[in-house]
Design a protein around this nucleic acid. Sequence first.
DNA 1: AGATAATCGAGACGGTACGTCACGTCTTCGA
DNA 2: TCGAAGACGTGACGTACCGTCTCGATTATCT
Lengths: 208, 208, 208, 208
Amino acid sequence: MEKQDDASRKSGRPGRPRNEATHQAVLEASLRLTELNGYSRLTIEGIAAEAGVGKQTIYRWWPSKAAVVLEAFAHDARSVVRVRTTGDLESDLAGFLGEVHARFSGPRGTVLRSLLAEMLIDGEFAEEMLQQYLIGRVDDIKLVLSQRKLSTKHREQVIEMIYGAIWFRLVTRQPLTAAIAKRLAAMAVTMIDGLQATEAVRKPKKKA
Amino acid sequence: MEKQDDASRKSGRPGRPRNEATHQAVLEASLRLTELNGYSRLTIEGIAAEAGVGKQTIYRWWPSKAAVVLEAFAHDARSVVRVRTTGDLESDLAGFLGEVHARFSGPRGTVLRSLLAEMLIDGEFAEEMLQQYLIGRVDDIKLVLSQRKLSTKHREQVIEMIYGAIWFRLVTRQPLTAAIAKRLAAMAVTMIDGLQATEAVRKPKKKA
Amino acid sequence: MEKQDDASRKSGRPGRPRNEATHQAVLEASLRLTELNGYSRLTIEGIAAEAGVGKQTIYRWWPSKAAVVLEAFAHDARSVVRVRTTGDLESDLAGFLGEVHARFSGPRGTVLRSLLAEMLIDGEFAEEMLQQYLIGRVDDIKLVLSQRKLSTKHREQVIEMIYGAIWFRLVTRQPLTAAIAKRLAAMAVTMIDGLQATEAVRKPKKKA
Amino acid sequence: MEKQDDASRKSGRPGRPRNEATHQAVLEASLRLTELNGYSRLTIEGIAAEAGVGKQTIYRWWPSKAAVVLEAFAHDARSVVRVRTTGDLESDLAGFLGEVHARFSGPRGTVLRSLLAEMLIDGEFAEEMLQQYLIGRVDDIKLVLSQRKLSTKHREQVIEMIYGAIWFRLVTRQPLTAAIAKRLAAMAVTMIDGLQATEAVRKPKKKA
DNA sequence: AGATAATCGAGACGGTACGTCACGTCTTCGA
DNA sequence: TCGAAGACGTGACGTACCGTCTCGATTATCT
C-alpha cells in the first residue's frame, strides 16, 4: 500500500516522483469527510474533489476507499496512546483504557467504526487492518499486561475480552466514558487475579 | 419494520392482500445471496431477480437491504440456541457458547458479520438490530448467568466481555471452535467468581 | 435501433413504457450540440445533460453517439428534399442538387460531415447509415435520372460521381453554392448524353 | 508540421539533436496501429508504447495524432503512383486510377479513410492534409488530364467527380477493384468528350 | 355484479458513483 | 537539450444500482 524503500526509490526510479503533498491531502480529506458525513457517504470522487486531486491518483496508490481511510487513521494513530507500566496493573490499565475510550468517543470513533465494519465485510482488508493497525494496539495492551505472569493463551484471551468489550459498545452505540474504562480495567484485573490463582494451582512447581 | 396490527389488516383492508410466498422468497434470497457473494455485493436488484420479484415489492415492505437481511436472519434465529440451567454454570455456559460458536462458524457467520458491519455504520439500523435480535441474545445469556448472584452492572459487563470476545474473533476472522467456546466459558466463570468474592466483601450483610 | 412494431408493443409489453418526450429531447439535444460545438466535442454526457436525461437512458436505446446523431439527422431529413420530374432532366437535376447544396451549406452540413466521418471509421455504423439514410437519398436521385434510358451500371456510376463530387467538397471544405449545383447538374447531363450515345451504338437493335 | 529550416537547425542549435530513428519509429508505429485496430482505437499513448518512445517526444513534434498519421501516410506516398502520358487519355487514366484503387484496397485504405474522416471533423487538419497530400494527388491527375484541352473550371470539376467517386466507395465500403477503376476512367473520358464538344461550340474560333 | 383499491412483475427513468482510459502537462534521471 | 518513464489534474467512458415511477394484470373487500 505504501512505498517500501524510500532510499532506493529516491535516486534510481525513472519518471516523475510521487507528490508527497498530494498524498497527504488525500489522507486528510478522507478523514475529514468520514468524520463529517459518515463512512457510507464517503466516495472516492468526494475525496478526490475535497483533496483537489484526480481520481486516478487515488486509484494509483490505494486499492479501495477503506485502504485510504485505514492509512489516514493508522498514520495519525502512531504514538497517540501512551503505555505506562508503574507496577500497579489496575491503574496502568485504567489509564490506558481511559485514553482509548477518550480517543474513540470523539470523531475518531466514527472512523474506527467504519474500519471495523470494513473488516467484517472484506477479508483481505481485515488482514491489512490487522497488520497496519491492530497488531500495534494489541502489543500496547500486551505491554501493560506483561507486569503480571500469565500464560500466553490466557493473556490473549484477556485481550480479546477487553477489546471485545470496547467494540461491543462501539457496535451497540453505547458511550465510551472514563467510568466505563475504569470499570473495565477492574473487571480485567479481577479476571487476571483469578487466572493467576488457577495457574499457580495447576503448575505448583514454584510452590515446592 | 412490519405492519404491527395484523389482526385489523387481515379483515378490514380492501385490495389485494400481501403475498406471503413472495415475502418468504425475498427473505430466503437475501440470505442465500449474502452467504454466497458477501454482503457488499448484495443488491436490492439482485435480491429481486433471485426471488423473482419486482423491486417495488421489496421497497414496499423494507426500508433498506440491511433490514431485509436482518429480518431473514432474525427469523431463522428464533429458538435455535437452547438455554439450559442445570446449576453448573460453567458447563451451561460452555454449552450455550458452544452452540453459538458452531452456528457462526458456518455461513450464518457471514450474515452476522454483515449485520454487525451495518450497525457500525448506520445508527438507526443499529437500534433496529438491537431490538429485533440482540436483546434476545443478551437475554439468553442473562438467563444462564442468573444462576449466580451478581450485581446488574457486573452482569452486564460480563456479557459485554463475552459477546465482545466472540465479535473480536468475527472481526479479526479467527475461527470460532468448540475449544474456544469452552475456554471462554472458563474465563467468564473465573471472572464471575472473582466478582462475587469482591461483592461479598463490599456488602457483608449476608455474611453476618 | 428503433422499436419495430408500435402496434404489438403498445398493448402486450410489461413494464413502464418508453417515454417518447425523452426520446425526442435526446434527438434534439444531439443535433443542437453537434451544430454548436462540432461532433468531436459532442459527448454522451453532454447530450444527457442538455436533454435533462440520464446517461443510461441513452445507452438503453442507442449503441453510440453516432447512432443518436444519425437518428436525429435521418428523422428531420424525411421529405425535406422534393424530387420533380418535369421531363427536362438538367433543370430537374439542377433543382434537386440545388436544394441538397442549400441544405448542407448550413448547420446541417456539419452534421452530415460528422456522419460521413463516422462511416469512414466504423464499418457497422456505415451499414446503419446506408440503410437509415443514404439509400433513400440514392433513390431520390435515381428517380430524377429515371427520365433517361440508361443501364443500371451506368446510372449507379453517375450517382457515385454526383454524390462523390458533393462529398469531395464537404471533405475539402469548399462551399456548396447554387452555382456549383447548377454546374454539377450540367456536367452530369453531359456525361449521361455521352453514355446514351455509347449505349445506342453498342445495342443497335432499335436502329434496325 | 515539421521544422522548416532544417539547415539552420543542423548546425547552430545546442543540446542533443533530434533522434531520427525515434522519429521513424513513431511514424511506423502509427501506421501499423491504425491498420491493425482502426483509427478510432489509435491513441497517442498506444503509439508511444508501440514505438518505445516517451509521450512527450510525440507531443514535441506533432500537434495531434491525426498529424502523426498524416505525416506517416504522406511520407510513404511519395512517388508511389506513377503518372504516364502516352497520348491515349483513357488508357493513361485507367492505369493511374488502377494503381490508386489497388493502393487503397489494402491496409492503406484504412489509413486514408481515417484521414478523410479527420478532415470532415477538423477544419484545420483538413487544410493541413490538403497541403501535405491532396494537392499533390490532384496535380497527378491534372497531369494526366492535361493531354486534352479543357477549361480550368471543367477540369477541376472532372477531378472532383473522379476522386469523389472513389471517396464515395470508401465511405460506403464498396470494393475498389481494377474493373471499377477502368469503368471510372471510361466514364470520365465520356464526360470530357462531351465537355470538349460543348466548349468547341461555345468558342468556335478554332473551327474557322 | 361492479366498483374500488391494493398487490404483483416488469422495466423505464433521472441520478450518483464506480473503476478505467486517454488526454496533455509536468518533473525527474540518464545520455 | 533530448528522450524514456511515469505522476498528475481533468474529463469522458460505459456500467451498476439506487429509489421512484408507470404500465397491465391480478385479487381481494365494499357497495
